[in-house]
Design a protein around this nucleic acid. Structure first.
Length: 443
RNA sequence: GGAGAGGUGGCCGAGUGGUUGAAGGCGCAGCACUGGAAAUGCUGUUUAGGGGUAACUUUAACGAGGGUUCGAAUCCCUCCCUCUCCGCCA
């Protein structure tokens, strides 16, 4: 992680609060207990201790600075009323000012160091699971919520895996992609490229119609953006980095979209804000050697249409349900069988408080595979990104809630179509809703 | 990449060392006036941390970081960003 230097250009950021320090201080045991549901051995005790010391120093420093300000004023007044710089009274004040300066020079670095330590630890703490997230240690304890489209599961026993049929049809090429780049890349050719493009267009159209405003964000993004949405500091290994520039290849559109409103104070009238975006996504897939080495399931570069919501806190759980349904509506329109899984506390992503995964049926694997992940991040990302809203007529600001969901991963959708729509003669029927986009009925 | 200009509150815009968290204006909110409104007048109008049940109090912030000073929006250094012109380029 140290090789990447992601922390080096963070100075533009105000101190981020991340998990609410006050919440931790005032509710140590419940917060610790909730965090423990994730596993991972997070310990809040050191933070509380450091925070205690830091506040102690802050109080001392404030007092000194108050006195220092006072001295400054007094000198100013005396000079104004005609005192000379070498008057005894003035010199005495200056001396005291210098003494305070010396004391502050000792205090300040110590407090700063404590703050930095606290901040560094806080940034590594994941979000607290929502109370409605099922408790469990690993993905084995995820809970299936519902299934859809059993009647569309193909019964043909001779279906070829999507990568094999894709290569056979000449629309996917993996070998040449190794030549161009590496393994875990694909080149789409002819109708394959067109199908990918049609899927992107179709999905965006669906979301735009549902009220999501399309954005096409930068795909090279800075460290502050990755920190804001929770990818940094813990997951530096997972992203591609352009080392000379403090720029990273985006792992998901969630990251640039979160930072669209970083450090903003929105008006409550602005909420909710719905965005959708098509972007390529880049992941190093460190630690997944040997998993899904074939096909479109796990690539270093893949396309995805993402949905994102900025909402009022009390609405976020309802918004998660409708976000999930929006993602489901794409699978339903494509008539692809899927199931909805509620991730358990042990399998929850770093920034999420609650997550539904959508898993599409892949006949040749005989199982459901993740094609969308819809998460309510609560105020976790809003804290890191410092995105607040102000209620008309009310004092102060509050952090809003963010949600994100794939709608959908394009490559995996392609894979699902190539298998579920495969015909006995090795052609691919094109789903009805895509035909107008692609301009043909079969591949 | 080369040359120049600039970054102040929701916005415009003043401010080159001393009660400036920041004049003035616009906007916004409340009140007054009105049958209602406009116009007008008055009042208010940033955020974050600490202490306090609270009223309140204190600290910090004028792009960011550092320095000079008893005292910095104002002076010095470094960095970032924006704009204009030239070059290059899709």
């Amino acid at each position: 992680m140290n090789c990447c230097g992601w922390w080096q250009r963070q100075e533009g950021q105000r101190n981020r609060v991340v998990l609410d320090l006050k919440l931790i201080r005032d509710n140590l045991d419940p917060v610790q207990a909730t965090l423990n549901l994730r596993g991972g051995g997070y310990d809040l005790q050191p933070i509380v201790a450091l925070s205690q010391q830091q506040r102690q120093l802050e109080q001392e420093r404030s007092l000194l600075q108050a006195r220092s300000n006072d001295i400054g004023k007094q000198v100013g007044q005396q000079m104004k009323s005609g005192a000379k710089p070498d008057d005894l009274a003035v010199i005495a004040l200056k001396d005291e000012g210098n003494q305070i300066k010396a004391q502050l020079a000792d205090l300040e670095p110590r407090e700063k160091e404590l703050k930095a330590q606290i901040e560094a630890i806080l940034l590594t703490l994941p979000n607290l699971p929502d109370a409605s997230t099922p408790v469990g240690k690993s993905e084995d304890e995820n809970v299936e919520v519902r299934r859809w489209g059993d009647e569309f599961i193909p019964q043909n026993p001779d279906i070829l895996p999507h990568d094999e049929i894709g290569v056979k049809l000449g629309i996917l090429n993996f070998e040449r992609s190794v030549k161009i780049a590496q393994s875990r890349f694909v080149t789409l050719i002819g109708a394959g490229a067109a199908l990918e493009r049609s899927l992107i267009q179709f999905m965006l159209d669906q979301h735009i119609q549902a009220g999501f405003v399309e954005v096409l964000p930068p795909i090279l993004i800075n460290s502050a953006s990755l920190t804001a949405s929770g990818q940094l500091p813990k997951f530096a290994e997972e992203s591609f980095k352009c080392d000379r520039d403090d720029l990273w290849l985006t792992p998901t559109a969630e990251v640039p979209i979160t930072s669209l409103y970083r450090d903003d104070i929105l008006s409550d009238a602005d909420l909710p804000i719905y965005h959708c975006a098509f972007t390529p996504c880049f992941r190093r897939e460190a630690g997944s050697y040997g998993r899904d080495t074939r096909g479109l399931i796990r690539l270093h570069q893949f396309n995805k249409v993402e949905m994102f919501k900025f909402v009022r806190p009390e609405r976020s759980m309802d918004e998660l349900e409708s976000l999930t349904q929006q993602a489901e509506s794409i699978l339903q329109a494509l008539k692809l069988p899927y199931r909805v899984i509620a991730l358990c506390t042990g399998d929850l992503g770093f920034s999420a408080a609650k997550t539904y995964d959508l898993e599409v049926w892949l006949p040749t694997q005989g199982k459901y595979r993740e094609i969308s992940s819809c998460s309510n991040c609560g105020d976790f990302q809003a804290r890191r990104a410092n995105i607040r809203f102000k209620e008309a007529g009310k004092k102060g600001t509050q952090f809003l809630h963010t949600l994100n969901g794939s709608g959908l991963a394009i490559g995996r959708t392609m894979a699902a179509i190539l298998e579920n729509y495969q015909q006995p003669d090795d052609t691919i029927q094109i789903p009805d809703v895509l035909q107008p986009y692609l301009g043909r009925e079969t591949l």
